[in-house]
C-alpha cells in the first residue's frame, strides 16, 4: 500500500553465489572480530577508574547552605509536592531566636528525610525548590545492605559547613565556583 511519495524499498536481494556458500561472510565477520581484538578496549574499570559524570547529572541529593553556613531550606514543601515517588518527608519548625546563624529563613525543616530507595532521581524537587535549597549532586546513590540504610536524613544530605568545615565544603563544591554573594531579598 503506497501512501506517500517517500517510500523506498529496502535492499533485499537474493543471495549471490559467493554469499550462499556461507564462508565469505563468515570470514568477513571473523575479520571484524579479529580486528576488534586488537583495538583499544572501551572498558572503564569502574572501582579504580571513574567516569566523570555530566555536570547536570542527577544523583544523590544535597541540601544547600548559604555562604554563611545557614540552611537554605524553608520547609515550604514544594519538593515533596513535586516528588512523583513521594519519597520526601519533612517536618517544618519555626526558627527560634538565636538560631539565625543556623537557618536562613524563619521556618526550617526540623526533619528532612529522603528515601533513596523510592527516589527515582527525576530532579523535579530540585526544579521545584524556590529557595536554592535542594540539589541533585553528581554522586550516585551507593548500594546498601538493608532498607533502613536508605533513609537519608538531614545530616547526610546537608552540604558541609562552609566555615567550620571549609575543606570538605570546597570538595563538595567540586569545580563549581564558590558562591559569590547572591543577593537575597528576604
Amino acid at each position: 500500500m503506497q501512501l506517500t511519495q517517500r517510500a523506498k524499498s529496502v535492499d533485499r536481494q537474493p543471495l549471490t553465489w559467493l554469499e550462499s556458500i556461507y564462508l565469505w561472510n563468515i570470514l568477513k565477520g571473523m575479520a571484524i572480530t579479529l580486528r576488534h581484538m586488537f583495538m583499544k578496549k572501551a572498558t572503564i574499570q569502574y572501582p579504580e577508574q571513574q567516569r566523570t559524570f555530566s555536570k547536570v547529572f542527577r544523583g544523590l541529593h544535597v541540601l544547600n547552605r548559604d555562604e554563611a553556613g545557614r540552611e537554605n531550606c524553608t520547609a515550604c514543601g514544594l519538593c515533596a509536592v513535586a516528588c512523583p515517588a513521594e519519597a520526601i518527608t519533612m517536618e517544618a519548625a519555626e526558627r527560634q531566636p538565636g538560631e539565625e546563624q543556623l537557618y536562613r529563613e524563619e521556618k526550617y525543616a526540623a526533619k528532612y528525610e529522603i528515601n533513596m530507595l523510592r527516589c527515582i532521581f527525576c530532579g523535579l524537587c530540585e526544579e521545584a525548590c524556590p529557595k536554592d535549597a535542594i540539589y541533585l549532586s553528581q554522586t550516585f546513590a551507593p548500594a546498601n545492605y538493608a532498607r533502613k540504610g536508605f533513609i537519608y536524613s538531614k545530616d547526610e544530605l546537608l552540604i558541609p559547613h562552609p566555615i567550620t568545615d571549609r575543606e570538605a565544603y570546597v570538595k563538595a563544591l567540586g569545580d563549581r565556583q564558590p558562591p559569590h554573594s547572591t543577593t537575597h531579598t528576604n
Binding site: 519519597a87 518527608t89 528515601n115 532498607r147
Partner: peptide, 8 residues
C-alpha cells in the same frame, strides 16, 4: 506495604 520502610 510497610510504611516504616519508606521513612514515613
Amino acid at each position: 506495604k510497610d510504611d516504616e520502610m519508606f521513612g514515613r
